[in-house]
């Protein structure tokens, strides 16, 4: 056959960016919800990240076509990771600065894991993404997105068995990595 030149028409490859396009929207909505929940609450009030993601999903996901469900979950996982990690870092910083109260702008979400552990996980996860991007995606979806392993497998497009192996490996990989730092 002669050398192939593919000249795709404009609309040909548009889907890849869907999750990335959604991210700012989901991120803002999650932050907005967190702020609304905190307004008028007593200091130190905690929020349930799970409930936040659910609510954001119903608000944003509901207005969008179903085909973007996976995109939403990917974006939500990414957004939740940023919010939780930013918040953990902000509180760490506040502690070092002598316990000054952190304003809402820097996020007032309270997550269960210790702030420094979360921050370390974020760093380790970024390093994992350098070596094994799909494994990092899996961890992000499961840990910050609340997906089951089977759903992660579907979202990433691998078999449940592969996802299981990946998870075991990523979990150990991250544990070793976090231990080291």
């Amino acid at each position: 056959m002669t050398e192939a030149i593919r000249l795709p028409d404009a609309e040909a490859a548009g889907d890849q960016k869907a999750a990335a396009d959604l991210l700012p929207l989901v991120y803002l909505e999650l932050r907005r919800l967190a702020a609304a929940r905190l307004a008028g609450e007593s200091p130190g009030h905690t929020l349930d990240p799970t409930a936040l993601v659910h609510e954001a999903f119903l608000k944003l996901g509901g207005a969008r076509p179903f085909s973007t469900r996976t995109d939403f979950l990917k974006a939500a996982a990414e957004a939740m990771r940023r919010i939780l990690v930013d918040h953990a870092r902000a509180r760490n910083a506040a502690k070092r600065a002598g316990g000054r109260r952190v304003d809402l702008e820097s996020g007032h979400l309270v997550s269960r894991p210790r702030d420094d552990a979360l921050s370390a996980l974020d760093d380790a996860l970024s390093r994992l993404a350098g070596d094994h991007p799909q494994l990092a995606e899996l961890v992000q979806l499961r840990y910050f997105g609340g997906l089951t392993l089977a759903e992660c497998a579907q979202a990433i497009g691998v078999s449940a068995r592969t996802a299981d192996t990946w998870w075991a490996y990523a979990r150990s990989w991250l544990a070793v990595e976090m231990d080291r730092s």
């Binding site: 269960r112 894991p113 979360l118 499961r142 997906l147 490996y169 150990s172 544990a175």
Partner: peptide
């Protein structure tokens, strides 16, 4: 060995997702 040791540890941060999945 380090990886397998970590695999055997039951108390990983990752076992309690920040956003809960059902189970």
């Amino acid at each position: 060995d380090a990886l397998l040791h970590a695999h055997g540890e039951s108390d990983s941060l990752l076992d309690r997702p920040a956003v809960a999945s059902p189970g």
